[in-house]
């Protein structure tokens, strides 16, 4: 399976995002890393079977020249989901911060354990 330039960039971004999830203990950075991963996946979808000579699927045109419209339609939904998920995560983080006063996963976990 060969990968196009866009797909390679997307996979690199995906790995960058995952590195953020693995190595950063800050909750805000976790949410930002999730944002990076979402962008990477959107780029990957759009880069599937894409060539630079393709035109947007609008109006009457030669079907063989048109970029695949399905991933584009799907990615609009994925963007909406990404935004709402980020919003929910941030909202939850605000109330978490009010309770525990920390942005660090380790400290929050320790405080949660001391409570029970």
């Amino acid at each position: 399976m060969t990968l196009s330039f866009g797909e390679i960039i997307a996979l690199i971004l995906f790995c960058v995002g995952f590195y953020g999830l693995l190595a950063r203990r800050n909750i805000i950075r976790t949410i930002i890393s999730l944002g990076i991963i979402q962008v990477a996946i959107i780029l990957f979808f759009l880069a599937i079977n894409f060539e630079s000579t393709m035109i947007p699927p609008i109006g009457v045109s030669d079907p063989s020249m048109v970029a695949d419209p399905l991933p584009q339609a799907l990615m609009i939904t994925a963007i909406v989901i990404g935004v709402s998920v980020t919003a929910v995560a941030l909202t939850m983080f605000i109330s978490l911060y009010h309770r525990y006063g920390s942005t660090n996963w380790m400290k929050v976990k320790k405080k949660r354990r001391d409570e029970s």
């Binding site: 999830l21 909750i27 995560a89 525990y100 949660r112 409570e115």
Partner: peptide, 30 residues
């Protein structure tokens, strides 16, 4: 407060796993 931590952990863990799912279906579509 305990359930806020649990809910947050649940949300983020599952979202992380679903990003893998989405990348997987991108490959399947390809």
């Amino acid at each position: 407060s305990q359930s806020i931590y649990d809910g947050m952990l649940y949300l983020l863990t599952n979202i992380v796993s679903m990003t893998l799912f989405l990348l997987g279906i991108a490959y399947m579509y390809k």
